[in-house]
Design a binder for these strands. Structure first.
Lengths: 342, 342
DNA sequence: TTCTCTAACTTGAACGATCAAATCATGCAT
DNA sequence: ATGCATGATTTGATCGTTCAAGTTAGAGAA
């Protein structure tokens, strides 16, 4: 194992002081051009890399960003978090940051994790996912002045006191609904989650808006249920049975959409729909999970890599520009991936 | 924000020296019981937490474990890595370690990432996934004496010079095949990956073994193809067309199994099998991905949480017990999750 | 000349922990 | 009483970096 090269080694080899090496790397403008070049050459030659721990001791910056990793709670939709994490890790590396993982089950466990992490590893910032009404995590961090960004807008407060990046879910379901309208569908149902969840309500709103734009109402056209395949199947069957004129369904998730497909695809094969023959119905899901791709489900795709890089941009801006910067928010548009299902 | 509490603060409040506080926390046996208790009380009261950076400077240990996060390369099977990462993060936290992420595309990019990380953050160890023949990463780390464990056995060398944990894929497909035999199937095909991949060959071997055990051969009963849904569908159709007596298929992945299902399920619905009517065929997949759960696919499940905790156990043993410890290996048995598909 | 100013670089201290060695009691045998 | 081992605690040094203050040399003004 190569012995580690310190800044003193570089200084000695380049015939300058430690501080000049440090300056050549961190504050090049105060070093004479010729000196800077000589130092950088030696740095290259010896393979010097700054020691984060030592730097952190002095500057108080760890260049670590903490993020939570979830078990695939909701099965199918789990992949969203992982795609986001991957994007975050990649852009963070480009900016000289690394992503540190933690797990937590529930808001209180998560703030406890914050406390632990801040005490020991001192991450420079946190990235939170899946914000919800009355999120206790954001206030905890804000009170302590810890920088953070959320993927998910601040649902509780209209003017968020912090940075967030989100995907415009309503725009996604609106696009999906318009797409179905353009294909000639007139009676388009919606399968969503129980009211009160910001994300779910937002997605329903896009569908409603698209129908309203062409003068159509939504009465009797939607069902709310738990986010899983079986509930989705039940809700879809119920909706389609009661309204024989429905020819398409927009869903708040791929899980629900998959359930709907079990009912909607005709003739209903025994293993899927339980044998109920049914008319063909178009279905659109949300999140463009691997399942959607595998079974040919049209779905709304979130630009997760962009969300991740935007989060990081806001963070580095906040970290670099001091705490006084006003919180910036970003709402990114999703895209519709059209496949065989609709 | 509460000012950070240092070991000196604790020492002052407890009326002892810094070193005694350090000892009370790290080497309790050398401190008098009464003193220890007093120090720990103060630690609790002031909310003292050791500063990792400072500790790392002195001890050379970062208590960080680096792991790679992948984009969902293979779509459906991507979730395996994430479940593993989650388990790793959880058990690592219990042992006082944290997981640091990095990304890399290809072995060489990955060793470059090793170099960067070791220079800057000095992780105590690496956890590698998806080992393969001629893996350059393991030799790179071994040459430099960097501790690491792999999830995936050392395919190239019989006596691995390093620790690994793996799941007995052959045992999994063997169990799957036996399960099908017990249900009366006699002609059972196999859908796998091109020969030469350790994992794929291992999974095929389990199937072969189970058939051999009851005196059945495998000629003309298997197909090898790229790991995706469409190739799986093609291969399955080819296999089933050529041998009308096949009534069940064991697959090397859920992706292939999903493709096979498109063909196998009868009567083939137009949207799935392209309209080819076919006899019913049982299908078993591998990895028990969310897709399998969603569509009722019987699948072999890897105990990923156990794999993760085993990796960590081997690592902490190696890190604690010095470098001289002989490499330990672990082969864990998977389990069969039986669903409607077979 | 002498003084001031600035650019370029150097020096000493500090971040917060642990290691290694030193100190201080205390008990016990001589 | 003296010496010696043992246990409990303290002291000083150190890890590698950057901050803050200090030094040096050369240019230009008085």
């Amino acid at each position: 194992m190569a012995d580690k090269v310190t800044i003193a080694d570089v200084a000695r080899a380049a015939g300058v002081s430690r501080q000049t090496v440090s300056n050549a790397l961190n504050t090049p403008e105060v070093v004479r051009e010729e000196t800077r070049r000589r130092v950088l050459d030696v740095v290259e030659e010896l393979g010097y890399r700054v020691n984060q721990a030592a730097r952190q001791m002095r500057t108080g910056r760890s260049r670590l960003i903490a993020a939570r990793i979830d078990p695939e709670q909701d099965g199918i939709n789990g992949s969203v978090g992982d795609r986001f994490l991957h994007g975050l890790t990649e852009t963070a590396a480009r900016e000289g940051y690394r992503v540190l993982l933690y797990t937590a089950d529930g808001d209180d466990a998560e703030t406890a994790a914050f406390d632990d992490l801040l005490g020991a590893y001192e991450p420079d910032a946190f990235v939170l996912m899946a914000t919800h009404h009355g999120d206790r995590r954001t206030s905890w961090l804000a009170e302590r002045g810890v920088p953070f960004v959320t993927f998910g807008r601040a649902w509780s407060e209209p003017d968020a006191p912090h940075c967030w990046v989100d995907v415009d879910g309503a725009a996604g379901t609106e696009a999906a609904t318009r797409h179905l309208l353009s294909r000639g569908h007139r009676r388009i149902g919606f399968l969503g989650w129980p009211k009160g969840s910001g994300v779910g309500d937002d997605r329903r709103e896009g569908w409603r808006r698209a129908l309203a734009e062409v003068g159509l109402g939504v009465t009797g056209l939607h069902r709310e249920t738990e986010d899983d395949v079986a509930p989705g199947e039940h809700a879809a069957r119920d909706l389609l049975d009661r309204d024989p004129e429905i020819t398409a369904l927009v869903c708040a998730s791929d899980s629900l959409a998959l359930g709907a497909l079990h009912v909607a695809r005709a003739p209903g094969p025994a293993w899927l729909a339980g044998g109920h023959p049914h008319r063909p119905v178009a279905v659109v899901g949300f999140d463009d999970t691997p399942v959607a791709k595998a079974i040919g489900l049209t779905s709304v795709r979130q630009p997760l890599a962009e969300v991740a890089s935007s989060c990081l941009r806001l963070l580095t801006h906040r970290l670099g520009g001091g705490a006084g910067a006003s919180p910036q928010n970003l709402l990114l548009p999703p895209s519709l991936v059209v496949r065989a299902s609709g």
